[in-house]
Nucleic acid binder design. Structure first.
Length: 270
DNA sequence: AAATTCTCCTGAAGGC
DNA sequence: TGCCTTCAGGAGAATT
């Protein structure tokens, strides 16, 4: 399940290979993704040169000379490099033909998307209202404290809200709350500035560490060159129900918050 | 209006 | 062995 580290890993990998390259053609095999792909976009993309690849939240932005592509990996989306003669795999929905390599998109659940925009992608309706980037200087304990001082929702829902901060999905929300020692069900408005500082720092730290490990592979994620992420071995709580807390040895507990599995240590998190 | 629930989808896992 | 149910969750849409 791609979260920010997996998207960042993907962006770095494809950027290394594709910058300044020309897209010979885009072939769409299945347009029924989260947002249907419009086939008249193809002629706007074919023959264009890639000038920049970056991300905003979990959206991958491929800037072309004119216009840009926006890709979201959804739950199970993967971009990977293939040789042109390799047969398509099940759920390969589209591919870019670039010189002697193909960049293919595989997504069993089809929660991802491919969108073309003529305008500034950051102004696109899907991106314009996104919250702060976790690595930005202005994403701080002070920001969380101010933004959340009237919020009645749980802190876990709060940090998973893309209008607050982008890129924090279920895995890293659980991990960051553990590192900060905050119970996931605690009401946001009841958290002190000092603890918000610890939480903002923990979010930055867990995301940065996961990027250095190449992301987290639970079962779906692989990098464009086929490497799994190695952060799974470093998880403190996610997926560790009934295993012992790495700090206090008590059993990790599981509860549902906002219809998502939440893992925590009731001794270390209050 | 913020908070919560619903929805899309497939594959894996578990129960009987 | 095989069929059924349940679960996984990103995030916009719908609902409360």
């Amino acid at each position: 399940m791609p979260e920010l580290p997996e998207v960042e890993t993907t962006v770095q990998a494809i950027s290394n290979k594709l910058l300044t390259q020309k897209i010979d053609s885009l072939e769409v095999h299945e347009s029924r993704l989260r947002y249907p792909f419009k086939h008249n976009w193809v002629k706007k993309i074919d023959g264009q040169t890639i000038v920049k690849i970056n991300r905003r939240g979990k959206y991958i932005i491929i800037k072309l000379v004119k216009g840009a592509l926006i890709i979201h990996l959804g739950m199970t989306g993967k971009l990977y490099f293939a040789n042109p003669q390799d047969p398509l795999k099940k759920h390969d929905h589209f591919e870019f033909k670039i010189g002697n390599m193909n960049l293919r998109y595989n997504d069993p659940r089809r929660f991802g998307c491919l969108i073309w925009t003529n305008n500034d992608p950051l102004q696109h309706a899907l991106l314009i209202n996104l919250g702060k980037e976790p690595f930005s200087k202005t994403f701080s304990g002070d920001y969380l404290h101010r933004k959340g001082r009237k919020s009645e929702t749980t802190i876990k829902n709060f940090i998973m809200n893309n209008k607050v901060v982008v890129g924090v999905g279920n895995i890293y929300a659980n991990e960051a709350l553990y590192l900060a020692g905050i119970h996931p069900k605690r009401k946001t408005c009841n958290i002190s500035l000092k603890r918000c500082d610890e939480l903002a720092y923990s979010i930055k730290r867990v995301l940065a560490k996961a990027i250095r490990s190449g992301g987290t592979t639970i079962k779906d994620y692989f990098s464009p060159s086929g490497e799994p992420g190695y952060f799974k071995n470093k998880l403190y709580v996610y997926g560790r129900k009934n295993e012992s807390c790495r700090r206090c040895k008590n059993k990790i507990k599981r509860m549902i918050i906002g219809q998502r599995s939440s893992f925590y240590c009731s001794h270390c998190q209050t």
